[in-house]
Design a protein around this nucleic acid. Structure first.
Lengths: 339, 339
DNA sequence: TTGTATGCGTTATCAC
DNA sequence: GTGATAACGCATACAA
């Protein structure tokens, strides 16, 4: 059924090894035979068997994608499709293919990773999340298997290659923008406080206030889940304060979208009554009512660089750990009342 | 470095073939040696090399995912993450892994497919789109390679296995719901008219009108792109008619969201002035303002069944082509003014 | 019940 | 320049 290198060899009247060399475009093969062999390949509709090649090469030219557990929830966030798109782009350029991990529960994911790594299905791994004491991360580190994490690692920051934004500065920039536009009562609506992103962005917010000599109030900081209902409770809390904020820094567009809805229900008008600055700049922020000001963290490039640098590490194993910071940009839309 | 079946064999004092049989849990091996071999595997931290196994087996236990071209745009639609989630779930249950195609342009995609198929990287393929005269589909058909398409194939419907909704009935149901609630002037906002989904839904809409003896007006049917700006022009067209519609059937939530925004800008209130029924029931429809009535097409299950049935076909090659119809459900929310 | 030998389709190391 | 030949790690038909 399927045509192999041997069939080609017979038809072209050469040895299998010669065919292999032609495929690799080995310079030691004469043009004549190259032409002849290529013709034979075309005639037979030959395609190299990647599996066999991988076995001989001990390299699969594939990278593994590991999603956070509870992908069900997380996939609702447009962040993931977009970063996968970036990874796909980076991988494609280097002619690597992509293997996705399946599995929802934490244990299943770990299993999927050992399957990919131990089974030598992939040459490296992209971790799409960064958790405290992550067994997957430990496993990869212990096995010295090439991997890169998207986001800042909690531990061993110096020893792990990762791509991230400067979330501290990004948040500081956004907060300062609000301050410059006359806001003094600025609240912070963060996601899971155990996430490094949240912590980084909170710090940026705090420092922005500090540097502008604005007071920092504990009650102005609330944490909610990333998704849909997320904003609701946060907003309720904040606007039942004696001195409700006039502006909000929200760490995720989807959450900000929820905030927008809740404010609307409360009869508060954005941006007249309250201004909102959020993060990620996904499609949603553009088409929301009103369009959201959002920090563009360049998700695509985050993924693209992740793939690129992982592959670099795969092909150059003793390269030291790197840190890649993707620039951000403030995208100002109608959700902010300007001075 | 990496421990193989031979190392285990030596440690356990058996032949490599015995180890192989233990892995496969071959009943002809005595419990004693099984235990001993398993112990050796554990001691050495053995993990089977999937690549080698695939080569010997001529089966990779992996399925390939092929996205439509211009994934950049398409990935903005929450439909894709969700269906991938379903596929992932179905594959996981059968212990299959997932290989993603990279590449954006049509030609790159075709190349990626021949790479996966010819390179024997996967045992079967899920096509996440259905196009007219698709070279990929022809290639797979000609090579008799197992594949399944999500959506209805344009040609050879009888010979190709696919999962789809009953889009005709779904659209008819939605339209009838509007009619039952007193709407007589109902417009249809469709996506790309070359897509079979669009055609099916248009037909359902038309027949619903017909069966209720409502007139069908050509001007009430507009087609727009699936994304963001999508709704705008459509709505402008419709509401500059002499007799503007009081209800809209929109074939995609994201587009409906755009419609909502445009209506808002025009000062039209949903549902008081105009009612909207859309499709897909993605998160967006739930959190929009007002929440959208949407036909839940059960995207997850679409993906789940795609994976399940593809794998069934892989493991049972001469099974005839099947058609799997996923049930839909009308989810009524505030976007409809009821009688 | 277990071991031996061979093949899966390549690549790579020798030779010539 | 090109051709044998031995890996790569596993599965399996055939022996024993």
């Amino acid at each position: 059924m399927s045509v192999t290198i041997k069939d080609v060899a017979i038809l072209a009247n050469v040895a299998p090894s010669t065919v292999s060399r032609v495929i690799a475009n080995n310079p030691r093969i004469s043009e004549k035979t190259k032409v002849r062999v290529r013709q034979a390949m075309a005639d037979l509709g030959y395609h190299p068997n990647i599996i066999a090649r991988s076995l001989a090469n001990k390299s699969t030219k594939a990278i593994g994608l590991v999603m956070p557990s509870s992908t069900d929830k997380v996939f609702q966030n447009p962040f993931f499709p977009e970063i996968i798109r970036g990874i796909s782009g980076g991988a494609h350029e280097k002619k690597y293919s992509i293997h996705m991990s399946t599995g929802q529960e934490e244990e299943e994911i770990f299993e999927a990773v050992t399957h990919m790594v131990g089974g030598r299905l992939v040459d490296g791994i992209v971790l799409l999340y960064s958790r405290l004491d992550d067994p997957v991360q430990n496993y990869l580190k212990n096995n010295k298997f090439p991997f890169i994490v998207v986001g800042k690692p909690h531990k061993y920051e110096q020893q792990i290659t990762y791509v991230d934004n400067d979330n501290y500065t990004a948040s500081k920039d956004a907060t300062e923008y609000l301050i410059k536009n006359g806001h003094q009562l600025i609240a912070f609506v963060g996601g899971d406080p155990n996430l490094v992103v949240t912590a980084d962005r909170l710090l940026g917010y705090q420092d922005a206030l500090k540097e502008s000599n604005l007071p920092y109030h504990q009650e102005y900081v609330v944490h909610e889940e990333f998704l849909r209902e997320g904003g609701k409770e946060a907003v309720n809390e904040l606007f039942s304060l004696a001195n409700p904020p006039t502006a909000l820094v929200v760490t995720d567009d989807v959450m900000a979208f929820g905030v927008l809805n809740t404010l609307d229900q409360m009869g508060l008008v954005v941006p007249d009554d309250v201004s909102v600055f959020s993060f990620n700049n996904v499609l949603l922020s553009e088409i929301s009512r009103p369009p959201l000001s959002s920090v563009d963290i360049n998700i695509y490039r985050l993924g693209y660089e992740a793939a690129k640098n992982l592959i670099q590490k795969i092909e150059n194993p003793d390269e030291p750990a790197k840190r890649i910071i993707i620039p951000h940009e403030l995208i100002v839309r109608q959700s902010i009342r300007k001075k």
